[in-house]
């Protein structure tokens, strides 16, 4: 109030025209300031630039030159400006591709946000126990065979094997033919035997009594006498051997859980109305 009364003392300041001009100038200044404050800013920060450069490098196997980087940044600015203008004009609405990308991005972001804590050993062991069959090795056998080649020039393989079987059963040693495939296996699946010798051989091994010479078994290569020494049933690999796989599988399942929970939560936040379906 005091100041106001002071102003009144000056005749110049009491002029209405001066008031008008002063007020106009103030208004102009305010509008200019306001419009500058409203001008949207596009910032390309150091991190963005580094990412642009690295991305470029990934494709080209070398760092971009100064000129190339400037072009990259320029392109990035143009892209941002166009995208913002498109959003301002509402071009993103009712666009299936944009919608899909956003949904996918949200799904990804939600996964990243909901960090899964490191599982402890007890958790992993429990998961392993629940999914033991998933970590099984197929059943295997230890088996040896005496081979009589179809190629042999003297005694035919069938006849030679008959004699040999008798001798083997009497506890004598027998010399068969060499084979490119091993004559003794410590630990082999019947699937591998079927692959290398044919189904018939694999089935014979499956049926053979333990510790006895049996045959003749015919394969694509000739005649075999076989003796199964040991059978190792399908076996669960020890936890220590598969720990990293268990952890990966556990994490995958937890992620899926989190995703499901997130989607459920969204369902609760929104009311979904679908034509033709009861509310």
């Amino acid at each position: 109030m005091i100041r106001f009364s002071n102003l009144r003392r000056s005749p110049f300041l009491r002029e209405p025209l001066v008031h008008f001009l002063l007020f106009g100038a103030l208004l102009f200044g305010a509008i200019t300031l306001a419009s500058q404050a409203r001008q949207p800013v596009v910032t390309i920060d150091a991190q963005d630039i580094e990412q642009l450069a690295k991305y470029w490098e990934l494709q080209n196997q070398r760092a971009p030159t100064r000129v190339e980087l400037a072009a990259l940044i320029n392109e990035r600015v143009d892209e941002e400006l166009l995208a913002r203008e498109a959003i301002r004009l509402g071009l993103d609405k009712e666009d299936m591709i944009v919608r899909r990308r956003l949904a996918q991005k949200m799904a990804f972001t939600s996964e990243d946000v909901a960090a899964i804590p490191e599982p402890d050993e007890r958790t992993l062991q429990a998961y392993f126990e629940q999914h033991r069959e998933g970590y099984a090795i197929a059943s295997r056998v230890a088996v040896q065979h005496v081979f009589f080649s179809r190629d042999r020039l003297g005694e035919p393989p069938q006849a030679a094997s008959t004699l040999a079987l008798r001798r083997l059963k009497a506890g004598q040693t027998v010399l068969g033919d060499p084979s490119l495939l091993p004559l003794a296996y410590a630990d082999i699946t019947t699937a591998d035997l079927a692959r290398d010798y044919g189904e018939e051989f694999a089935e014979a091994v499956d049926k053979a009594p333990l510790g006895q010479w049996v045959g003749p078994v015919i394969s694509a290569f000739g005649v075999h006498l076989i003796r199964v020494e040991r059978r190792m049933p399908s076996e669960i690999r020890p936890f220590a051997d598969v720990r990293s796989q268990v952890k990966a599988a556990w994490l995958a399942e937890r992620r899926e859980d989190e995703n499901r929970k997130f989607r459920l939560a969204l369902r609760k936040r929104y009311k979904v109305e679908i034509a033709g379906l009861p509310q």
């Binding site: 991190q47 963005d48 990412q51 642009l52 690295k54 991305y55 990035r76 892209e79 990308r101 949904a103 996918q104 991005k105 949200m106 799904a107 990804f108 972001t109 996964e111 995958a252 992620r255 899926e256 995703n259």
Partner: peptide, 18 residues
């Protein structure tokens, strides 16, 4: 879900992709 997330990630903003 994994596949979707990959697509989302790669189809997203340039920064995220990079």
């Amino acid at each position: 879900v994994r596949r979707t997330s990959t697509i989302a990630c790669l189809g997203g903003a340039a920064t995220l992709t990079a």
